[in-house]
Write a protein that binds this DNA or RNA. Structure first.
Lengths: 348, 348
DNA sequence: GCAATTCTTGAAAGCGCTTGCAGACCGTAA
DNA sequence: TTACGGTCTGCAAGCGCTTTCAAGAATTGC
């Protein structure tokens, strides 16, 4: 015996944590198997025993030990979620939804953050795998595709924001192309023709998609694409500030800017403000992601909205389905535009 | 045998996950105990065996199963963190720091969010306890003190943003009073005397502290406190907007506003903007928390900065110390002021 | 070279739960 | 009454690891 009985009883008295199924069985006068069966509903048990066991359970305040359970069942009942940043309000909503959904299905959620760094992300994933998660949700992973495919042999995977086709991998495509098109198209509809673009980092899958969406919309409207109107940011406000300054310093002429994400737009707006250029009077600004803060920017920012909570819930549902070997229901969400005060029409 | 050997070998071949310590022992020609001892450094083992075992481990790509380990050791090696919202950039930094620190000490972090709702938080805590976490970090909990004291019998607790004195509870006081004083004092130093205050929800412990800090600074400067200059918000931008509108509608006269947190300040600035009141020319605004976005507000927001990453790291360190029964090192962090463009001096 | 120590190491029990197996029990048909 | 099928329920093994205990190996001292 590793721990003395005295110790045991003391801490069961004080913490109520050390109650075991066996104790419940003894209290109820049945065998442990019976208790287990009642707990799991794995077999029919005589009504009188069920009642006795339930009484014992609530008397002893028993909660089954998930660790022992996991070991016995050979299932950890946990899934790993690799996010890029806890702070980002964008991920925040998704994380909340994921957590809720998983908890509801009795899975534990292990969140780790990769900080958009390949090495960090790799470490995170290894950590999760070592913890024996049964599935992993990768939110906008920046790992190479080949590695992701390999990973899928260790656990089923859900990917958002990129698409990798392989066994045990399910991608939830956020279709940034469509959203970027939508935003650009909106500006065009408002009469803008010289539309600048503040891009995301070129090595980001969805940054590329967004750039493509921008180009597509221009092409559709027969507006030539010029590199002069594009500056590369890094998805941060700081990058947006710098990008906008570059554009301005290069004397680029434009009546509207489409920023690859809201944070970039914040930086851009600040740069414009500093130069005394008024938004939206002189330049319209549109963002992407529709962060909560965007509603309260000055002026409130028009932005492409995506249903992140739904995305998170869907991701959670998908990983559960894969773990439990059920077909994954595909659910598409299309981005919409939250029109606010940072854009104006050139018509009339 | 629950799973067939075939199944076993198949998935060990494909996933490499089912390698057990016993297999390593067989491969290395030693007993499981020896492998365990090498893994844990719990006893001296002959050099030649160590090498054989290490070779076997890397050949088989063995990772000890944490579930089995937890069960055998009677320790879950996990700590629960109750945050209020994943999305909040304020918590974000702290969470990241907590995660890092815990991972470094080989603890798993279980994050759950309470959404500032007592019932949700209670559910979260129960969930964590059921998962047998060895300690819990409560970030700005809104649970009643009595309940928290009870909780501490289940697991050691770290609390931030409030103070409850009891066995197995350690509070990391963020001392909002001092920060609020600091901000108010700063405005006073800049020559402001009519300073409005946009409060946080009155039932929030730290909102009360902030209000007190505001009052203290006023008192020190012998400026009478007037209720007319105070509006209650709810720590959201929306609340700030509403609060500011109330103040404005009530014809309150002020040259500066201190908002209980940055989000409140965002809302307030928007309200001012909508009425054509310029910040900081006509009204100075100061916030609290120094969110990342504040740097890019228009104008960039002056705010009370608190070292949240450090706070998180400290919290993690403290809970580890408590779990491992070591004394908790108290570390104080004092808030500082990040002065930006939303405030101006009335002197000269 | 032999006894007395000190090191190493393996066998086995145990962590708390699940589950295959088989015996006990019950009702029913013959 | 006996036999038979079906229903409950307990026993015991096992999940993968840790750890106690005691035996065997190696070392030391004389």
């Amino acid at each position: 015996m590793r721990r003395s009985d005295l110790e045991r009883s003391v801490d069961s008295a004080s913490t109520g944590a050390a109650v075991t199924l066996e104790m419940v069985a003894a209290e109820a006068g049945v065998s442990p198997s019976t208790v287990s069966r009642i707990l799991n509903g794995t077999a029919k048990v005589r009504e009188s025993k069920v009642r006795a066991v339930e009484a014992a359970i609530s008397k002893l305040r028993f909660t089954p030990n998930p660790v022992a359970r996991s070991l016995a069942r050979g299932r950890s009942m946990s899934v790993g979620i690799v996010t890029q940043s806890f702070g980002s309000p964008f991920y925040g909503e998704a994380l909340t939804a994921i957590e809720q959904r998983l908890m509801r299905a009795n899975y534990a959620a292990l969140f780790v953050s990769g900080h958009y760094r390949e090495a960090d992300e790799r470490r995170c994933v290894d950590h999760l795998l070592a913890r024996r998660v049964e599935g992993i949700i990768l939110l906008n992973s920046c790992l190479p595709s080949l590695e992701i495919v390999n990973l899928a042999r260790g656990a089923p995977l859900i990917l958002t924001g990129r698409s990798v086709t392989a066994e045990r991998i399910h991608c939830i495509d956020v279709d940034s192309t469509a959203g970027a098109s939508l935003a650009t198209q909106y500006l065009i509809d408002q009469g803008h023709r010289r539309i600048a673009y503040l891009a995301g980092p070129a090595d980001h899958a969805d940054a590329v998609q967004r750039l493509n969406g921008y180009k597509t919309a221009l092409a559709t409207a027969r507006i030539p694409f010029t590199k002069k109107l594009v500056a590369e940011g890094d998805y941060t406000a700081h990058g947006g500030l710098r990008g906008m300054n570059e554009l301005l310093d290069a004397q680029a002429e434009f009546t509207a800017v489409f920023a690859a994400n809201d944070e970039t737009a914040y930086g851009a707006m600040l740069a414009l403000h500093r130069r005394g250029i008024r938004v939206p009077q002189q330049v319209s600004v549109i963002g992407y992601d529709d962060l909560p803060a965007s509603t309260f920017m000055i002026p409130p920012l028009t932005s492409v909205h995506r249903a992140t909570a739904e995305l998170g819930e869907h991701a959670a549902e998908a990983i559960i389905a894969m773990i439990e070997d059920r077909p994954v229901v595909r659910r598409e969400t299309t981005p919409t535009l939250a029109v606010r005060d940072s854009t104006r029409s050139l018509h009339r």
